[in-house]
Write a protein that binds this DNA or RNA. Structure first.
Lengths: 343, 343
DNA sequence: TTGTAGGCGTTATCAG
DNA sequence: CTGATAACGCCTACAA
């Protein structure tokens, strides 16, 4: 592999000049520039990113810390990040945190001496130690789908989003509304009980007394959702509607309802959470969380921090949105699209 | 940020010694090693990855080129890659190729002068130019879900996998079998018509004459699948079974069938392709493609190339597997699990 | 076993 | 406008 020295020799110029044309510096004679470019072509020369990084103190790499690669939610966030980065010349290194040990390892040394100019922390709560370390290393970081007063962030008010769903069910006349939720990831208690709080708040605001037996926490899976519904149906006075903390669990809820001969939404109204792709094919009414948007905005914020000398730390909250489909019983009369019929 | 020089001074040793304990070199006196480690602790010293990379000529970074971040298939492959890498101290930089232009840009400069020690190319066919460039740069590369004689690869025989599905339908007594497939990604014609070939081959082997009007190519989406089925149903003699080139399209097929009052599998048997997570909840019979496994094996192969001096180029083919569920009409009598009932 | 010096490929500084 | 030359932080002989 030719180095910049080879390039300079080939072009008959000094390395300084060669470097200048590489970096697109202005003060180079057009003729000289052309000579160097021709030499580049001949040699098939490509500058070394690492050498450049060492010299400039910038790697042109952003790192993202994200839990559970597989989950649709995170993939969508990543997608937003990726899209926002495509236009820039930053590379993206992704680090998945699946176990608490991973978290500690990743948090032990983020960009500091590492290879990244900045970090995007998704749905994870940084430890005080990490924050301190980042600050000391002058490594900008932004939180996505998480909040901490010490760091800029792009988040969603999950309590408000959940309340949206429950208010909707109340408006449809339901008084007995169950909650089927999933536990927060143990190592990522980003919004402890956010949805639960929103659920409770909505009930209270409507003057409905919460019933503890209606509030269930189960696995983040269709099976988990189905099992929870079984328990609700076994009650002396089962709910007439359920708010499910994830569309994934809602799949199991719908399935179990159908197996019990319950008509959705007539016998049981169901509202999910997240608005995964599948939701529309199930006709699932759900709360749309702006996943890609959060990723995109997170990148924008981080790039701003990177560019600006005086980092303006900010905390933005994106709105969630209720998507009304078939399973809540409030579908608009018209438009019998595919979304109305899958279950 | 302290450098290795600060560390050496703090520990009262030379930089050489400091470097040796950092790299875990053997010839260091235990007492000296302890002193250096204590100094590391005090200073909160972290070695610079870029400096090390420049010096050693190794970045400890692997790059993966993958089309369409969003697609379940690729996410699964990435997941396999990620899992295999978690145990190592390699980082992963992901580059998504969404447009032909992206492809050219990424192919223009892979690891060569870049920041990666090796490349994983997923479901993409490298140009001759890229292969040549990789070779010249001594940058190992492996193909995942793609094949090229000049590069080691981990792939699946999509024609054989498709034949698996069609043979199954034939064995169930079907003679009129339709094909609903999606176009290969225009810039990634990895297995041109692989599924189509398998479909045709299976028919021919069973002595069934192919009917061109049964062979449809539509969008990679549920809507695309649904629309295709509409066309098949409009035929004078509609098929009694369809093999669908992706589970995503099969979702639309099932939905459309139901809307037409067709019972699946009695009136129409359906077999999908890929075995996405949702397939089990739809009771969809499908062909399981070992997505994660391909990713994992790809990494293993690449790491071997990286470690070995004499790169043993290999080409492995992983077997696909038919997953029999409800939509083909061959479900086993027992076990009425959730998978049997979602539609 | 340990310290010193040279080099990895660029960029930035500073004379010319 | 251009050409040397000193960093950048680390690793690896080589010498002690």
């Amino acid at each position: 592999m030719p180095t910049i020295r080879d390039l300079a020799r080939e072009a008959g110029v000094g390395v300084g000049t060669a470097s200048r044309v590489l970096s697109g510096h202005p003060h180079v004679a057009p003729a000289t520039r052309a000579r160097v470019q021709a030499a580049m072509e001949r040699l098939g020369y490509r500058p070394s990113r690492v050498a450049r990084a060492l010299s400039k103190g910038r790697t042109q790499v952003l790192e993202v810390l994200v839990p559970l690669f597989t989950r649709y939610f995170y993939v969508e966030v990543l997608r937003g990040i990726e899209a926002a980065l495509a236009a820039t010349d930053y590379s993206l290194v992704i680090r998945t945190i699946e176990r608490a040990a991973d978290r500690d390892r990743a948090f032990a040394d983020p960009c500091p001496r590492g290879h990244a100019d900045g970090v995007l922390i998704v749905s994870l709560l940084p430890t005080a130690e990490l924050i301190e370390r980042l600050a000391r290393a002058g490594c900008p970081a932004v939180l996505v789908d998480a909040e901490d007063a010490r760091l800029p962030s792009i988040a969603v008010d999950h309590a408000a989003a959940a309340a949206l769903a429950v208010h909707h069910l109340i408006a449809l006349g339901h008084r007995r509304i169950g909650l089927i939720d999933h536990p927060e990831d143990p190592f990522a208690p980003v919004y402890p009980g956010g949805r639960y709080q929103g659920y409770r708040r909505a009930l209270v605001e409507a003057g409905i007394a919460p019933r503890p037996e209606y509030e269930l926490i189960t696995d983040f899976s269709p099976e988990g959702g189905g099992a929870a519904l079984e328990r609700l149906l076994a009650l002396a006075e089962p709910p007439t509607a359920v708010f499910v903390g994830s569309d994934t669990q809602a799949i199991g809820v719908l399935d179990t309802a159908r197996r019990h001969g319950l008509r959705v939404p007539d016998d049981l109204a169901v509202v999910g959470y997240n608005d995964i792709e599948l939701a529309q094919y199930l006709g699932l009414t759900t709360v749309r969380i702006p996943m890609r948007e959060m990723g995109r905005r997170g990148v924008e914020l981080l790039l701003t921090l990177l560019a600006t000398d005086s980092p303006p730390p900010a905390a933005a909250r994106l709105p969630a949105e209720l998507v009304v489909r078939r399973t809540c019983g409030a579908a608009r009369a018209g438009g019998a699209g595919m979304e109305r019929s899958a279950l």
